[in-house]
Each structure stands twice: as C-alpha cells, then as structure tokens.
C-alpha cells in the first residue's frame, strides 16, 4: 500500500481569476510524473489535498470532470494561510496533490433518474465537475431530466460564467441561474435567493428524482424546506459537507459528525444519513 500522505508532484499550468472581486481563482495542474494522472483517477464529487511544501495542505473539491483529461482543476477561495499563499503562486510553480479523497455523488444510483443540482456561492466546484460529467455525450443518456439552480451574490460572483451561459443555451439541461441582486439592466436570468428559486423553478419530485445540494450552511438550511415542499424525501436529498480537515484519510480525527468521518465516509451524505448524526458541520 502506498504512503497516503505523499502528494503527487504537479506543476501549475494555468491560473484564472474566477470572480470579479478576485477572491476566487481557478488553478489548472498537470502531473509531473507519467502514470500519476492515472493513479489519481477520480469521480465527480471527490476532493483532494492541495499540498504546498513548507506552507501546508488544504482540502479542495475537484472542479474538473473525470471526462476531462490531461489536467486537474480546482477553484480556491482566498481565506487563510494556505489559500492566500496559493493565490500568490505563479504558473510553472511546483507543488503537490494528494488524493483523490472521500466518496462521490452516487452516480450508479442516479442512473435513469431526474437530477436537480443546487449550488450557492463558491461551493459550485464539484457541481461543475458533475455537470460536465453528466453532459458528456456518452453519459447524457444515462440520466433523465437535469435541472440546475445556481446562485451567487451578483453576476460577477458566479463561477464558470462562460460555461453557465453555454449550458443555458442547450436543451438537454434546464439552467436556473440567479443572483441575490444586481444593478445590471441587461441581466436576463433570475433574481432571488437560492431557496426561493428552488421552490419556484425546480421540478417536483417523484420516486425517481434526486437533489444534490452544495452551499454555505445557511443556504443548505433554507433549501431543505423548499425541497420538502416539492416532495423530496430525506433519502432523495444528497449533500456534500465541508468540515475542517487535515489528513483526509480518516485518521487525524477532527472532521467527524458522530461516528462518521466527513473526509472518508463522506463528504457526500444523504439528508437521511445526516439526520441520524449530530449536526456538527
């Protein structure tokens, strides 16, 4: 068995500013060693530890999709020691990636189902991975209707804007983009908080419907009643949690909710599972 603490060496291949306030950047990495990309093969919904030698490690959701080859992508919000350092790094710099870690959205279960994806703020990274994965030609037929509700404070704070507007044009995915508010008179999408838009625009649930929800705790909290009104049962609501992490492999003991370790038994849980554990997230 390999040393699970040893990161794969990677090079920063591209850095893009992701939001108008520059608080988020998208980093594209390529593996330095042949064969490592294959060893890193992942599913949409997993995360990795970005490892900066001498600075530290941070758990970040994988934003690229398993269907995109040759690189891995992460979108990082600048907040503390490691994320601030990363924001100042340059293309060409060498660092590490450890993973893939955690479980993923239940893709087998979601086959032949209607899926509604609900995201808020910058917790859209693994949802982007999921959408790209589902829309890939060979995968699209595996799913029934796909709806997406995604909201941010303002248009400039939406992640992956170019892709959002592309998806908006397609007829095999229903996009419901929203912002809390905007002074842009040409804004042609929704205005309002995510829970409200969910209630108005998301499809009603039947037994073949699932919702995937990712966002700040407050959004998650207020989205639950909206989904309940639409008929989603706790086992049809899938969530991804973010707890403070270090090891990412279930050993350092800090990320637990009850007996579940979010890094290893999660980060993806159904609401039904979460309802059985202490709400320490």
């Amino acid at each position: 068995m390999e040393n699970p603490y040893l990161p794969y060496p990677v090079r920063i291949d591209d850095i893009q500013i992701a939001t108008e306030d520059k608080s988020l950047k998208t980093f594209k990495f390529v593996f330095l060693n042949e064969g490592d990309e294959e060893k890193f093969s992942y599913h949409a919904g997993q995360f990795a530890e970005l490892s900066i030698p001498g600075i530290g490690e941070i758990p970040i959701g994988i934003a690229s999709s398993p269907t995109e080859k040759g690189f891995v992508k992460f979108t990082v919000f600048k907040t503390g020691v490691v994320t601030s350092y990363l924001h100042n790094m340059k293309v060409g710099d060498i660092m590490g990636i450890r993973g893939p870690l955690g479980n993923w959205y239940p893709w087998d279960l979601l086959e032949n189902k209607n899926v509604v994806i609900i995201g808020g703020g910058f917790a859209f990274t693994t949802l982007r991975s999921s959408i790209v994965y589902m829309l890939k030609e060979e995968n699209r037929s595996k799913f029934k209707n796909i709806d997406v509700v995604y909201g941010a404070r303002s248009p400039g704070m939406l992640l992956y804007r170019d892709e959002l507007y592309e998806w908006e044009k397609r007829d095999d995915i229903n996009m419901h983009i929203t912002v809390d508010g905007t002074d842009d008179p040409t804004w042609k999408y929704n205005t309002g908080f995510v829970p409200t838009i969910v209630e108005e625009k998301a499809p009603k649930a039947d037994k073949d419907s699932y919702a995937i929800v990712c966002g700040p705790p407050i959004m998650i909290k207020f989205t639950q009643p909206s989904l309940e009104k639409l008929g989603y049962k706790p086992d049809q609501i899938i969530m991804s949690l973010e707890n403070r992490m270090k090891c990412g492999i279930g050993m350092c003991g800090r990320c637990n909710i009850g007996k579940e370790l979010v890094c290893k038994d999660g980060p993806v849980f159904t609401l039904e599972e979460i309802n059985k554990t202490p709400k320490e997230y």
């Binding site: 900066i52 270090k246 050993m251 800090r254 990320c255």
Partner: peptide, 28 residues
C-alpha cells in the same frame, strides 16, 4: 488525534504531525 503542520528553515521544508486535542476550539 493529530495535526499536520509545515515548517521551513532556510531552504529546507518539513511536514510534521503533532499530537492534537479535540478540547481546543481550533481543532474544528
């Protein structure tokens, strides 16, 4: 339970793991 911390001395960097405690608010 343990913590993982990086340290740099000159051009040498080390990653350490240290005992940690769930009694500390920083833990989570």
């Amino acid at each position: 339970c343990f913590d993982i911390q990086d340290e740099t001395r000159g051009k040498t960097c080390s990653r350490f793991r240290n005992w940690d405690t769930c009694m500390d608010p920083l833990f989570t």
